[in-house]
Simulated assay, not measured.
Amino acid sequence: MRFLLIFLLIITIPLWAQNKVKQTFKRYMNTANSAGLTGEETARYLLALNGLNTVSVTQSKGIMGDHYDPIKSVIRLSPKHFSTPSLTSAVVAAHEVGHALQDHQGYVLFKFRQALYPVAAIGSNLAFYLLIFGVLFGFNQLAVYGLVFMSTIVLFQLATLPVELNASHRAMNQLLSANVITSEETGGARQILNAAALTYVAAVLVALLQFFYFFFAIFGGRR
Rank of each mutant, 00 (worst) to 15 (best):
I153Y: 02
N30K: 09
V108M: 10
R190F: 04
Y68S: 03
L209C: 04
P14C: 12
N173V: 11
A100Q: 09
H99E: 07
Y28H: 01
Y107Q: 10
F137P: 02
N50G: 06
A217G: 02
T160N: 08
V119D: 03
L208I: 15
G123V: 14
N19A: 11
L205K: 08
P14G: 12
L5R: 12
K61V: 09
L131M: 14
F216G: 00
F156A: 10
Q141S: 15
G98L: 08
S151N: 04
A171K: 04
F3N: 06
N166W: 02
F137H: 14
F133S: 12
F215C: 07
P70H: 13
H99G: 08
A167R: 11
V74L: 05
I122F: 13
E184M: 03
T186D: 00
I13K: 07
P162H: 06
I218M: 12
D69C: 08
I13Y: 07
A43P: 01
F219M: 05
I75C: 04
A189K: 01
V108K: 14
L198Q: 10
T182F: 03
K26L: 13
A94G: 06
H67Y: 14
L46I: 06
A197V: 08
L9S: 12
A197D: 07
E164W: 05
I192W: 01
I132F: 11
Q105H: 12
L193A: 14
A48R: 15
R190P: 00
V148R: 10
V119I: 15
Q102P: 06
L155D: 03
A120P: 03
L198H: 04
N53H: 14
G106T: 11
H169Q: 12
V97E: 04
G51Y: 07
F110I: 02
L126R: 05
F219C: 04
N125S: 12
P85A: 03
E164K: 06
M150S: 14
L175A: 02
Y200E: 07
I192V: 15
L116G: 03
R113I: 02
G36S: 07
H67G: 02
G123Q: 13
V108S: 10
T38Y: 01
T58L: 13
L46E: 03
P14H: 13
G221C: 08
A143D: 04
T186M: 12
D103Y: 13
V180T: 05
L136Y: 12
A178T: 04
L158V: 13
L198A: 14
L77P: 02
L147E: 08
V57I: 10
D69Q: 08
A17S: 13
A100G: 08
G98C: 06
N194G: 00
Q18S: 12
V108P: 00
K22R: 15
G36V: 02
G138H: 09
T199N: 14
L87C: 01
V204I: 09
T12C: 14
V92A: 05
I6H: 03
Q105K: 14
L77W: 00
L87Q: 01
T58M: 10
L4S: 15
V97R: 07
L8A: 15
L130D: 04
S177D: 11
L175C: 03
F211E: 06
Q23P: 00
F215H: 09
H67L: 05
Y45E: 05
F219I: 04
F211T: 05
G98Q: 05
S168A: 14
S56W: 00
N33A: 02
N50R: 15
Y28L: 01
V163L: 11
F128S: 11
S86R: 01
L176S: 00
T58F: 01
